[in-house]
């Protein structure tokens, strides 16, 4: 026993080094697995407020462009409302299937293989895990961690991200993932080789998951090729969203999410 202690005291630097290194490595491995990084992340109070202060300063630089985007979106919305024949009366009692919360992006990254965003809405604003995040142009990701005031979003530019999407024209569906290379291109897999594809086809969300409503825009086909076994396509999808430049986003709450979850649990 004495010798053991002596050994530790003699090599205390090395022991400390090994201890800290193994801590760091286990944290790293945990972060590579989806939904496992339950330790500290950027949606906690301190980092959130620092990013918030920084965002308070820098958001002025983009005001002009953001206004432009909002104006365009408004225009589009107005057009759909006006062109609807029997316009839906605006009624506060009307029950919506999806609720939208607007939010600001405090932190965004796109250069890493596993990217996350930090948003300024959290549990106080009734944000929970698995809510979808979109912009006016297309989808952004899924909320994976929340704290009191902030939430973290698993970006579609994350190698762990899996989103159910379909071809708008033919309704064939597959899984959208990312290979970690270009922040503009994501990959759509699991589409069978007998499906007819053409470059420029639109990809939309399928609505099979409770996260996103159906027919949300995602991107267009940039190029496609067969996989190694030559029975499924790997399709490069060019995103509508500019993931490098996100400022205002919407968080989607599916009001039936609890009901759907309960159904799925009873199924298992």
């Amino acid at each position: 026993m004495q010798q053991l202690f002596n050994f530790f005291i003699k090599n205390k630097t090395f022991v400390l080094f090994l201890l800290l290194l193994s801590c760091a490595l286990s944290l790293t491995i945990q972060s590579h697995e989806y939904h496992r990084s339950k330790f500290l992340n950027s949606s906690n109070q301190i980092t959130g407020s620092i990013y918030g202060t920084y965002n308070g300063i820098t958001q002025y630089f983009n005001l002009k462009k953001e206004n432009q985007i909002l104006l365009e979106e408004n225009k589009r919305m107005k057009m759909t409302v006006f062109s609807q024949e029997n316009a839906v009366p605006i009624d506060t009692l009307l029950e919506y299937k999806y609720e939208l919360y607007s939010s600001l992006v405090y932190k965004n990254s796109y250069a890493l293989p596993n990217n996350y965003l930090t948003l300024n809405k959290g549990q106080i604003d009734h944000i929970e895990e698995d809510y979808g995040v979109i912009t006016s142009k297309g989808i952004v990701g899924i909320v994976d961690q929340t704290s009191k005031n902030y939430s973290r979003v698993l970006s579609i530019l994350n190698t762990n991200s899996r989103i159910n999407v379909k071809l708008k024209k033919t309704n064939y569906f597959g899984i959208l993932s990312w290979d970690g290379k270009s922040p503009e291109i994501t990959q759509l897999k699991d589409i069978q080789d007998l499906v007819k594809l053409s470059i420029g086809d639109t990809i939309v969300t399928s609505g099979y998951s409770s996260t996103f409503p159906p027919n949300m825009p995602v991107g267009t086909i940039d190029s496609y090729r067969l996989n190694d076994t030559e029975d499924l396509y790997i399709i490069d999808v060019k995103l509508f969203n500019d993931m490098k430049n996100l400022e205002h986003v919407y968080i989607i709450k599916n009001t039936d999410i609890n009901e759907l979850k309960a159904l799925n649990i009873s199924d298992e």
Partner: peptide, 19 residues
């Protein structure tokens, strides 16, 4: 790591070069 949401990547590298 906490700020950049990268797990423990920077911690591992930093502690190694410090050692």
């Amino acid at each position: 790591d906490i700020f950049l949401d990268s797990g423990g990547v920077h911690a591992a590298a930093s502690v190694t070069i410090a050692y």
